[in-house]
């Protein structure tokens, strides 16, 4: 890119020719791109075109273009519905709960891994803590339901054995979010360390040597050398997480949801699924989904802007 820019200022004519030669000479590369371009056009851009049904009363027999325009009716209906604030609250509270626990834990674990000598112990802990990442959502939900079953769940029995009365985790709305977040932490903390461990491998050993000479303790070195080194990675991960704040794991929520805990387990995306595909309110559900996407994009841009103003690191 840089080279072509340099030549462009010198010889605009030659550049044009060489550009054409480059396109023709590399025509196969466009062929290489073709499947991917088709894929994104059909399964990502065509649905974006379909978003307009959020402003229409979509009737399948009339098609997208033939359906009558209703403007912001569906949005108004959603904003005025009695469950609107419940959905917003559940979505945000689950996300922030998850972020508050699930974001720092992999960082702490990675810092701990980094302090320990490379050996069998470290390798074992890493292998074991990475493993739950590969458990499917369905099996995960099955495990949660099994372990928390009031009649035979092992966690319930452990709590009872300690002399406490175990709550009805599966059906009590008050416990849904904790159950969701803690199981997520169990499943993804280990895997989440990899990206930080990669960043930690970039720590300059000379800094540690110098710090040791100055009598800095291990803890101080971790705090003042290791942590600042991975700060850019932490920032980027935080931005990415914030941008996904409304994209809570609805696939798992859907499996753990039941009529009794619905008041605290229903989030925007599970609602979109129920309204859209179970009740076939296509237009209304698309409007709710669009609302969700727009908030997401706004959040991502906002967090990125803040990150760029306050630190050197941002996505763009």
């Amino acid at each position: 890119m840089k080279a072509s820019k340099a030549s462009a200022t010198a010889l605009p004519n030659l550049k044009k020719n060489s550009r054409r030669a480059q396109i023709l000479g590399n025509w196969e590369l466009y062929l290489f791109m073709l499947p991917a371009v088709l894929y994104f056009l059909i399964f990502h851009y065509a649905p974006m075109y379909g978003i307009q049904i959020a402003f229409k009363n979509f009737v399948p027999s009339k098609g997208i273009l033939g359906s009558p325009w209703v403007g912001f009716d569906h949005f108004e209906r959603f904003f005025n519905s009695y469950y609107f604030w419940d959905l917003i609250w559940n979505t945000f509270s689950i996300s922030f709960y998850e972020l508050a626990l699930g974001f720092p834990l992999p960082i702490i674990l990675a810092l701990a891994f980094n302090e320990v000598r490379n050996g069998k112990f470290k390798k074992t802990v890493q292998t074991v803590t990475y493993a739950p990442h590969f458990i499917s959502i369905v099996v995960m939900a099955g495990m949660i339901i099994t372990f928390l079953s009031p009649s035979s769940g092992i966690i319930i029995m452990l709590i009872n054995a300690l002399g406490f009365e175990a709550p009805q985790f599966l059906t009590d709305p008050a416990w849904f979010k904790t159950m969701y977040v803690l199981s997520g932490v169990w499943q993804s903390t280990g895997w989440g360390t990899i990206i930080y461990l990669a960043a930690l491998s970039g720590v300059d050993p000379q800094q540690h040597e110098a710090a040791i000479m100055d009598g800095a303790s291990r803890f101080k070195r971790m705090l003042h050398i290791n942590l600042p080194t991975i700060l850019p990675t932490i920032t980027i991960m935080l931005i990415l997480n914030m941008g996904n704040i409304l994209g809570v794991g609805y696939e798992k929520i859907l499996l753990l949801q039941n009529s009794l805990n619905l008041e605290s387990s229903d989030v925007i995306s599970t609602y979109v699924y129920r309204a859209g595909l179970v009740d076939a309110q296509y237009s209304f559900s698309t409007a709710v989904g669009l609302f969700n996407s727009v908030i997401n994009v706004i959040l991502l841009v906002a967090v990125n802007w803040i990150a760029r103003r306050t630190s050197e690191n941002s996505l763009w």
Binding site: H44, M48, I53, V272, G276, L277, Y282, L290, S293, V297
Partner: peptide, 13 residues
């Protein structure tokens, strides 16, 4: 960063 969402994707499929 931006996608059509569940229902429009479903309709395409």
């Amino acid at each position: 960063f931006f996608n059509g969402g569940l229902v429009p994707t479903y309709l395409v499929v």
